[in-house]
């Protein structure tokens, strides 16, 4: 019984992860300029990858509970990978956004740009 519930939780988590990763790729293709593309790429792929990693962690812990001890290390290492992903991803996005603005690419369809105004002063 518990195994069946865990299996459905795993399906749901993997489904959410795949859906948001797909959305990130489509957003990358659909949005008009680099900043909005960064919105789609960073948020969606981070969230989707978190859910895929959570599914692997649950799978590892479940197999460990059933008595296969090699899966405990799988879960532990996935937690480390998740932490690395969660720290590095938004920082990289911030670096790209700053580089894009400093190299002179302005947001399209923008209603206001206070950074540009402050830079001119």
């Amino acid at each position: 019984m518990i195994e069946l519930i865990l299996r459905y939780i795993l399906y749901i988590f993997l489904g959410i992860g795949l859906f948001f990763n797909c959305l990130g790729s489509i957003g990358l293709l659909r949005f008009p300029d680099v900043y909005t593309r960064l919105h789609a790429a960073t948020k969606c792929t981070t969230f989707g990858s978190i859910f895929i990693a959570l599914a692997v962690i649950i799978y590892g812990l479940g197999c460990w509970y059933r008595g296969e001890s090699a899966y405990a290390t799988l879960a532990l290492h996935t937690i480390a990978a998740l932490a690395a992903l969660l720290i590095t991803n938004p920082t990289g996005a911030h670096a790209i956004a700053r580089a894009a603005h400093r190299s002179g690419i302005m947001p399209k369809q923008a209603v206001m740009d206070e950074l540009k105004e402050d830079k001119i002063e």
């Binding site: 992860g17 990763n21 790429a41 981070t46 990858s49 996935t78």
Partner: peptide, 15 residues
């Protein structure tokens, strides 16, 4: 940005 997205997806698929 596309490269960064591909990197994240590679990490997820490796896991």
């Amino acid at each position: 940005v596309a490269l960064d997205t591909i990197n994240t997806l590679v990490v997820a698929s490796m896991v």
